[in-house]
């Protein structure tokens, strides 16, 4: 799972244009939003696109989205459970 978490972090950094942020600077268990990363609602939409584009998973329920995108760990768990 560790390797996958790192891969996911790299994908998030690229998708959200987090210039200068290294994977080990992102705490996988910490909240992604309301953090020093400064993510906003557009970033949330980009994460939804990332899951569909890279893993074939569609997120349609906004309430579900809040739980899925809480942290890198929760995203990773969701992908592992739902990847096609």
């Amino acid at each position: 799972m560790g390797q996958f978490i790192n891969k996911l972090k790299l994908e998030i950094i690229e998708a959200l244009n987090l210039e200068g942020v290294e994977p080990d600077e992102i705490d996988a268990s910490a909240p992604l939003f309301n953090s020093s990363l400064g993510l906003d609602s557009i970033d949330a939409l980009e994460l939804i696109v990332l899951l569909e584009r890279n893993y074939g998973i569609k997120v349609t329920d906004p309430d579900e989205g809040r739980e899925i995108f809480h942290s890198v760990n929760t995203i990773a768990e969701f992908v592992k459970a739902n990847q096609k």
């Binding site: 959200l16 557009i42 939409l45 980009e46 696109v49 584009r53």
Partner: peptide
């Protein structure tokens, strides 16, 4: 990528 959503960013 017509089958994928457009990039919001």
């Amino acid at each position: 990528h017509p089958n994928l959503p457009a990039s919001p960013a």
